[in-house]
């Protein structure tokens, strides 16, 4: 078993706040939500479990020592699985990572027989392949066909979030960078400074 402090990247005399902060940052990085429908999900979940375990161990050790420290961690529940699925075989293929086979079965469904779940599962497969644009279209169609389904809505919202510039560029938001105006004002400032030291001109 690894040293819990090294898992969190801390040394053993870190304060409680530092432990919490380190835990939060790692949890943000490895949180399975970032890797939904991605082949890295397994790796991230494994890491997340390690971090949770290390954090729990540190916290319980400290609690035993102080008896009043609080434990707090992100609780991750897998998305609700539909019980009345029409595509149980496809879902189990997806869960075991056999996306090509799952895709082949889905492609066999005639166009007029394709329901909301078909589009949702197709979106999951496309997303795993990295075909983000088609995945977006599929989740959108699934939500339009069945607007009340929580599973489809969760997938669609996640994809909408990524598209609207969390970490990317959002036209409406602020972005710190240099505009022509900044350059001009920069030059004016430089000029003023020049005047300070060489007052001959």
């Amino acid at each position: 078993m690894k040293d819990p402090y090294s898992v969190l990247g801390l040394n053993p005399n870190a304060t409680d706040d530092e432990v919490k902060q380190a835990y939060r940052e790692l949890a943000k990085k490895y949180h399975p939500d970032n890797f939904q429908n991605s082949p890295l999900a397994g790796y991230a979940t494994k890491k997340m479990a390690e971090i949770n375990e290390a954090y729990d161990q540190i916290i319980s050790e400290r609690r035993a020592a102080k008896k009043n420290a609080e434990s707090e961690y992100y609780d991750y529940n897998a998305a609700d699985v539909q019980n009345n699925s029409n595509y149980i075989d496809v879902r189990s293929l997806i869960n075991s990572g056999r996306f090509d086979d799952a895709e082949m079965i889905l492609n066999g469904v005639p166009v007029e027989g394709r329901d909301a779940e078909w589009y949702f599962l197709n979106g999951v497969i496309k997303s795993n392949k990295g075909w983000l644009d088609e995945a977006y279209g599929c989740f959108q169609t699934a939500c339009n066909m069945d607007p009340s389904n929580r599973e489809y809505n969760a997938a669609f919202n996640r994809i909408k979030n990524s598209r609207s510039g969390v970490g990317g560029y959002d036209r409406g938001g602020n972005f710190v960078c240099c505009t022509p105006c900044d350059i001009c004002s920069g030059l004016i400032c430089t000029d003023c400074l020049c005047d300070c030291c060489c007052n001959s001109f």
């Binding site: 644009d133 598209r163 990317g168």
Partner: peptide
């Protein structure tokens, strides 16, 4: 831009 954002988010 939305397509690129999504792609960049996955890469990051």
């Amino acid at each position: 831009n939305a397509t690129l954002n999504h792609t960049a988010a996955m890469a990051v």
